[in-house]
């Protein structure tokens, strides 16, 4: 067994962790498990690809790879725009679907079911527009750099890990040090009480949708950059995302990130020990263990 699996696990775990932060935030504030969250990852990746392609048609110099990475300036620009658009998509779905159900006072499980329908529609819409053929941001090949200790990583992978770290620290600071973060935590504790104390609950719901979608978009673009872009990209990550959100404890940002890394590393270890075909079952095993042993997760509050 080579130590390389640690690097593979960290990279997969970083993407799972970013997505799981979105799941855990929407779960703690909107109070339902959003089965459509995976589709935000896929939409983020496809939007970035479409925008980056359009930019490339306008100016080919922006397509030229920025050494040592495999992509040109078109991708960072597209990422910023795709984050905005994915956020708008989440807000639109909320306005059309979840918001109406919430106002009607629907039970949690109706919201879960609606998210299930939305996930189906959003995913197949991607398949309809872009077909199910895998797509790539660039066709450039990258040579992995030796990092010592038997580890190798491509510059793209190292950049993704760095970006993840920055994003997680930024979200953590936002949640703990700013007034928006304080309001969000108040809403997650008790929406009625937060409303009485002058917190604009509807605004906080919009903020959390946008934040969750932005992180999902980043995770989706990274997955697209490091693996490939497919309509099922987000759907296949959904179980790891849920497993990480529950393992970390619903509502905990550092918990979700740490749990994402645990899930990613466990998957990489399972690929080494059991075989790649069982990779997708790892999250389920983790989920079962957490629900049996500590349903509130690592950093969650008791329900």
């Amino acid at each position: 067994m080579t130590p390389q699996f640690v690097m593979d696990g960290l990279i997969a775990g970083a993407m799972i962790g970013l997505g799981a932060i979105g799941v855990t935030l929407t779960y703690s504030i909107l109070r339902f498990a959003n089965f459509a969250h995976g589709e935000l990852l896929s939409w983020g990746a496809y939007l970035a690809m479409a925008i980056s392609g359009t930019i490339g048609m306008v100016s080919t110099t922006l397509l030229k790879p920025i050494a040592p990475f495999s992509f040109g300036w078109s991708l960072p620009i597209a990422t910023v725009l795709a984050i905005l658009l994915t956020g708008l998509l989440a807000l639109a779905v909320d306005a059309l679907l979840f918001g109406r159900l919430r106002r009607r006072g629907s039970a949690v499980i109706i919201l879960v079911m609606a998210s299930f329908g939305a996930s189906l529609a959003l995913r197949s819409l991607l398949e309809f527009i872009f077909t199910s053929k895998p797509a790539y941001f660039t066709k450039a090949l990258q040579i992995a750099i030796k990092l010592g200790g038997g580890l190798r990583a491509t510059p793209d992978q190292l950049l993704s890990l760095g970006m993840t770290l920055i994003a997680v620290i930024a979200v953590h600071l936002l949640m703990t040090r700013t007034s928006i973060g304080r309001s969000m935590r108040a809403v997650s504790e008790n929406p009625a009480l937060a409303g009485i104390a002058g917190v604009d609950v509807r605004k906080m719901i919009r903020v959390v949708w946008f934040l969750g979608a932005a992180l999902a978009c980043i995770a989706g673009i990274m997955t697209g950059l490091l693996v490939q872009i497919r309509p099922y990209l987000g759907h296949d990550l959904l179980l790891p995302l849920f497993a990480a959100a529950i393992l970390g404890g619903i509502g905990s940002v550092p918990g979700a990130m740490l749990a994402g890394l645990i899930v990613g590393l466990s998957e990489a270890l399972a690929v080494q020990l059991v075989g790649a075909e069982w990779r997708a079952a790892v999250s389920f095993v983790i989920l079962v263990i957490v629900l049996l042993v500590r349903p509130r997760g690592l950093f969650g509050r008791a329900a």
Binding site: F32, A33, F35, V108, I109, V112, L238, L239, F242, A243, I246, S283, F284, L287, V288, L291, P295
Partner: peptide
């Protein structure tokens, strides 16, 4: 209630 949904998905 939604943990059951997540578990059945798994």
């Amino acid at each position: 209630s939604d943990y059951l949904a997540i578990a059945t998905f798994g």
